[in-house]
Simulated scan of single mutants.
Amino acid sequence: MTIEAKSLWRSHGGMQGVYTHVSEACACPMTFAVYVPPHAQGQKLPVLWYLSGLTCTHANVMEKGEYRQAAAEHGVIIVCPDTSPRGEGVADVPDDWKLGCGAGFYVDATQEPWSQHYRMYSYVTDELPAVIAASFPMADMSRQGVFGHSMGGHGALVAALRNPGRYRSCSAFAPIVHPATADWSRPALGAYLGPDEAAWRTWDAVALIEDGARLPELLVDQGSADGFLQDGLRPWLLAEACKAASIALTLRMQEGYDHSYYFISSFMAEHIAWHAERFRR
């Protein structure tokens, strides 16, 4: 579980770092970012996982998400993994931004050639948490939350629904809520998981809820001017599933906002405060 610090920056009294390690789950080197807020010697801090969207790396939210001031204020560690394996020998489709590198969809692929490296679910829910626990002694792994954007919002919802009790909180920005039926995610699920669509249901938030998975509550922000709203995101499907399952969903339609980090950064501090409140319970 040895990690190498590639970059360290002082920010808002804490430390923003970028690290690499060799991943067993993904069978390649992986890069991730961690912000550790200012804290007293020996103090334990909750951990909030941010899962990024299609085409992104760890760097997008780190550079444009504007999370450090709120994380420092609330005393929350922010961990930002990459969105897929990368590097020599890793399968990719360079001319398709919805499949391959940058588009891991936070699933464990079962189909060749993807299954050798594309095990992002195991990476973000098992391997990287163990790395954080071993490498950051201030991290309180009994207080974890997860959130994300778009494909990463899908990943956050699925991780929380598949691991009841692990995360104290879950929220999302413009998540893909029903990827098994969305035009821009169906090809990836078919490539990674095979043609049997029944096998896709455990990687789909709406299907998981329909099949009995439960969470106490969810917070979702969605821009009304998002160009992917109608065909890819469709938050009303999550609302319908949560209502039927008596899951407390706060769905906020944000007028005039699109799918970009201008949208995410506008509501980032509110999400971190929301998670921090639940860490204190």
Rank of each mutant, 00 (worst) to 15 (best):
T2M: 11
T2Q: 14
I3T: 12
E4P: 01
E4W: 02
E4N: 14
A5M: 15
K6V: 15
S7I: 13
L8I: 15
L8C: 11
H12V: 06
H12L: 04
H12K: 07
G13Q: 09
G14H: 00
G14L: 01
M15T: 14
M15K: 11
Q16I: 05
Q16D: 12
G17K: 02
V18D: 06
Y19D: 03
T20Y: 02
V22W: 06
V22N: 08
V22E: 11
V22F: 07
S23G: 08
E24R: 13
E24V: 11
E24C: 07
C26Y: 03
C26M: 13
A27L: 14
C28Y: 06
C28F: 08
M30R: 03
T31S: 09
F32R: 01
F32L: 06
F32M: 03
A33H: 01
A33V: 07
V34D: 03
V34S: 04
V34Y: 05
Y35P: 03
V36R: 01
P37W: 04
H39T: 13
H39M: 15
H39V: 14
A40D: 14
Q41D: 12
G42T: 10
Q43E: 15
Q43F: 10
L45V: 13
L45Y: 07
P46C: 14
V47T: 12
V47R: 06
L48V: 12
L48P: 04
W49D: 05
W49I: 05
W49G: 06
Y50N: 05
Y50E: 07
L51W: 03
L51F: 08
S52R: 00
S52P: 04
S52W: 00
G53K: 00
G53R: 00
G53W: 00
L54C: 13
T55M: 11
T55Y: 08
T57D: 10
A59R: 05
A59P: 00
A59F: 04
N60E: 13
V61W: 01
V61N: 04
V61D: 01
